[in-house]
Amino acid sequence: MSIKLSDKAEARLKEKIALYPDPKSAAMWALYIAQEELGRLDDRAVEWTAERLNLSPVNVQELITFYTMYHKEQLGKYHVQICRTLSCAVRGSTKLTECVRKRFGTKPGQPSADGMWSYEEVECLGSCGTAPMCQINDHFFENLTPQKLTEILDRIEKEKPDLKLSTIDDRMGEGLKGYPKSQII
């Protein structure tokens, strides 16, 4: 019994496989593609990836548990990840975590009742010079204070912007209007 994802997803995986010396290299892409399409990496995703790349399902399971960006459980539509590592911590990241913890009232990794939000603390995101910061889906929000973060979350709640990295053409989502995608310079 073979699982099929959308034509777009199937085509995209084929395109990725062709880039590498060995199809197995596309395993991580396959999981990203399946995760975007199915919302989470369930048994169907495992079976699909294993079948397309000629891997054993247990190998695919291993990847899902090893890498932090793969999720077996559905996250909120907007997943807020606050960096907790030293450079962010010494510039006040714990205040950001407090802020989202209070706002959402959920446990880390658990979606809010309306499915809109989830949050967790993560390790250094390569944005230590603009600390403290958080990542919401694929977008960085840098140089934060609890007030700034609250404003951002309020706007997202209202405007529901496209913050996703598209699987169709590897491009960023539009992001929050007027908000820089990077503040590193």
Binding site: T85, L86, S87, E123, C124, G126, S127, C128, I184
Partner: peptide, 10 residues
């Protein structure tokens, strides 16, 4: 991913 490093990103 080394904590404190963001030069390659730039």
């Amino acid at each position: 991913s080394e904590p404190g490093t963001f030069k390659d990103r730039l």
